[in-house]
Design a protein around this nucleic acid. Sequence first.
DNA 1: CGTTCTAGATTGAACGCTCATTCTATGTTA
DNA 2: TAACATAGAATGAGCGTTCAATCTAGAACG
Lengths: 205, 205
Amino acid sequence: MSAPLSPSSENTRAETRRAQILCAAADCFRSSGFHGASIAQISKTAGMSAGHIYHYFENKEAIIAAIVAQDLERFLTLTAGFRAARNVQDAMIGCVANGVEEKLDPATAGLKLEIVAEAARNPRVAEIVRAADRTCRESLAETLRAVREASGHHDDDATLQALTEVMAAMFEGLLSRSIRNPDLDRDRVVRVFQTAMRDLMSQTP
Amino acid sequence: MSAPLSPSSENTRAETRRAQILCAAADCFRSSGFHGASIAQISKTAGMSAGHIYHYFENKEAIIAAIVAQDLERFLTLTAGFRAARNVQDAMIGCVANGVEEKLDPATAGLKLEIVAEAARNPRVAEIVRAADRTCRESLAETLRAVREASGHHDDDATLQALTEVMAAMFEGLLSRSIRNPDLDRDRVVRVFQTAMRDLMSQTP
DNA sequence: CGTTCTAGATTGAACGCTCATTCTATGTTA
DNA sequence: TAACATAGAATGAGCGTTCAATCTAGAACG
């Protein structure tokens, strides 16, 4: 799992170490949960002593925060590149297959569910998650507005936000589905999903 | 939170105690997570000594299992009553508002997300969750078949299961949404959701 | 080139604490 | 009195975190 990172001219040794720890922590959180994973376990996975981790992170919660921030930054860059496409609707529909497959990957799903569950009870994590989600929603809503206006729908913000919410719910629901029913027929789900997306984007309020 | 349960002629004292513990445990798991909640905390909430809990449950994991089983049994009875309705489609669409509101309740959402996250890493919990989900899916798929045949669609099992999956994903996604965006516009989401449900149920493969 | 110096990297033992679980002793009820 | 309900202290393991001690790479210097 943990890629054998090595320091290059680009990365200082400290950055490499930090990345190593985050990678190991993600693995441990995935398999044991935030509270189940111990510093001892993380340090062993990262190949360093327990105490050394405290040179790079103030405490365990800071590691959680960093993982969450890293995870959601990745999502932001993804949606950013998304909006830059020529034909936005086609780009989105085309991306559904990828998106569905990604959310259905049990390893991904485990960590992401862990993050949301932690956000439900840890205010600091909740703050990070909500700030990132706000940005994602704004980006997605603007993208949706472009799609909708191209097909003659001119929505107010509230309507657009509701569409965004439901679309987000559909994708995030897959995380849960991949755990509850790991044997689901991915290809067929993708097809039903694509049609549902199209319907959602051309919905008349 | 914890209802003050008292022994009646119906309930033996032991059953009452068990229920008390489960109720307290659900509260604690909601606010601290499965691993964050301690036996000491649960026993305090339940109003008894820590050691006494071990007269009713073998260990902490048994409490988790009981909570999961209880939670999902409740869901099963709900869907069972669902199928017994006269006009199934109207009953379903009518229930969307209730369903959406319920999934968006942050207290409910926290515990349910906790359960899925735990299932992602605890095989015993996963087994319970998956067995219950299978039953739910079968029930929902049969209900959907009735709806679809009433409007002239005759689907094979695989198609029906994919429709079921996507519908399940939509509702379960709301759990995550209620955490990530607690300020979402519930009424508008319900309306978009209802239209999306209708579209999903009349989708042509 | 070889030696010394030094600042950062790294270790691993130690600390205080909390955990799940067990055990013994005492209440309570029928 | 017999059987069960309950409390609460005891146990040992494991936790996050700290810290003094060691190592190591490379700059400074002769």
